[in-house]
Design a protein around this nucleic acid. Structure first.
Lengths: 220, 220
DNA sequence: TCAATTTGTGAACACCGTTCACTCTGACCT
DNA sequence: AGGTCAGAGTGAACGGTGTTCACAAATTGA
C-alpha cells in the first residue's frame, strides 16, 4: 500500500484536467456547443490552446465527456426517484416528469447528448456499447419500471416491456426536446390561460401512463 | 399588363438564387449542417463565396430557408393524408406514422429545423409569427385532427384540443428525433426478433391514440 | 451615349480545431 | 550530485470557417 496508490504528479494532472472540464462545462451550459471553443477554454484557465491536447485528444472527446457526465447526473436523479419507497403509480409518474424537469435544467447538454449522429452511422451503437453508456443505463431504468408495472398489474399485460419502454422514452424525449428547443413551449398566445411547463409535464405524463395502464375491466 | 409582370433581369436573379438553394439542399441532405459551407456552395455553382451574400444576408438565412421549405413539404404530405376520404381512425393513425416516415427521409433537415434555439430566447416566437411558419401550420393540422376526433366522438370529450395536440406532437416528435439521431433506433441487440422501424411507428402511434381515445363504456 | 444600379470578385479579418518543433520543469536512476 | 528522460506547456503555423469591403465588370435606364 505504501502511501496513496495514486499520487504526486498524477494528482496535478487530474486537477488541470478537472479545471479544463469545469471551464468547458461553464461555457457549455451558458452558450451551448456553439460558444465553446478550445481557445475559449484555454483563455479561461490561462493556458495555451495547444495545452488542452495534452489532456484530451480532440474537442469531440472533451465534449463527449461533458455529455456523458451530464447523463450520469440525469441517470442518478431518475434512479433516485424510482428507488423511493412510494406507491408505484406516483413513482411511475415522477419518473417521467423528473426526467424532463432535470433534463431541461441544462437544455444545451440534453440536446447535445442526443446529437451524436455519426455521419457514417456504421453500426453506430451495437447495444453492447450502448449498455455501457449512461444513456443506455437510463433506458434500463425505464425498462425496469415498465416491467415492474406490468408484473404488478398496473400496466397492460399484453405489452412487451422493451418496446413499451422505448415508446415511453420517445414520448418523454419528445417533450424534453420541445421544451429545450422552443424555450416557452407549452405557451400559446391564442390561449392566454394555458398550462405552464410543470402542468403540461403532468398532463403529458398522464396521457403516456393512460396509454399503457390496464383498462378498468380487465383481469390481472 | 405589358408582358409578364416580373421579367428580364429579375428572372436571372431568381435562377441564381435557386441554384444556390439547390446546391445547398444537396450538400445539406447528404452531409448535414456540418458539411455545408459557403465556400462549398460557391464551388458547386462556380461562383465566388462573396457572391452568395448578394442573395442571402447570412448563412443562417440561407439555412433557414432550407428548413422552412423542408417543413413545407412535410406539411403538404401530412395535409394530404389528413384530407383523404377515409375513416377517421385510419387518417388519425396515418397522420402520425406519415409525419415520422416523411420526416426521417431527411433526418438532417428535420433535426436542423428544430435546432433554432436563439441564444437569447427573447420572446423567440410570439405565436403570431409561429402561425406564419410551416412548423406552426403543421401544428394546426394536428390540432384540427384532434378536434375532429373529439367532436366525432372518437377521442375523450374532456380533453382540450390544443394541449392534447401539443402532447401528441411531442410524442411523435420524440420518436422522429430518436430515429434521426440513433439511426437504427428501435433495434435492440439483446432482442433479435425486435420490431423494425415501420412496425415500431405503428406501435408508438397505437399507444398515443389509446391514450386519447374514448374508453369503451362512455357516453358521446 | 452616359450615368447609375446591380452582380461578381479577390483579398483580407477574425475566428475555428489541430499539429509540430521546441523549451523547460520535475522525477527518477546511478 | 549529476545526468537522463518523460512529460507539460508554448508559439507559430496550416487549413478551414463566415463575413466584409473596396473595387471591376456588366447590365439597366434615360
Amino acid at each position: 500500500m505504501q502511501d496513496s496508490e495514486i499520487s504526486p504528479a498524477e494528482r496535478r494532472r487530474l486537477r488541470v484536467r478537472g479545471a479544463i472540464l469545469d471551464a468547458a462545462e461553464k461555457v457549455f451550459a451558458e452558450e451551448g456547443e456553439a460558444g465553446l471553443s478550445i481557445r475559449r477554454i484555454a483563455d479561461e484557465i490561462d493556458y495555451s490552446p495547444a495545452a488542452i491536447y495534452k489532456y484530451f485528444s480532440s474537442k469531440d472527446d472533451l465534449v463527449d465527456e461533458l455529455k456523458e457526465s451530464f447523463f450520469g447526473r440525469l441517470l442518478g436523479a431518475v434512479h433516485e426517484i424510482v428507488d423511493r419507497r412510494e406507491p408505484f403509480s406516483v413513482r411511475a409518474r415522477r419518473c417521467m416528469t423528473g426526467y424532463v424537469r432535470i433534463a431541461i435544467e441544462k437544455p444545451h447538454h440534453y440536446v447535445a447528448a442526443f446529437s451524436g449522429v455519426r455521419p457514417d452511422a456504421e453500426t453506430s451503437l451495437d447495444a453492447r456499447a450502448f449498455e455501457d453508456t449512461n444513456k443506455g443505463r437510463a433506458f434500463s431504468v425505464l425498462t425496469d419500471m415498465v416491467s415492474e408495472g406490468i408484473e404488478g398489474g398496473y400496466f397492460r399485460s399484453d405489452l412487451d416491456p422493451v418496446n413499451t419502454a422505448k415508446s415511453v422514452w420517445a414520448s418523454i424525449h419528445g417533450l424534453t426536446m420541445m421544451i429545450a428547443h422552443l424555450p416557452d413551449f407549452p405557451a400559446t398566445a391564442s390561449m392566454p390561460g394555458g398550462m405552464n411547463q410543470a402542468e403540461f409535464m403532468e398532463f403529458h405524463s398522464d396521457l403516456i401512463i393512460r396509454s399503457i395502464e390496464k383498462t378498468s375491466g380487465e383481469a390481472a
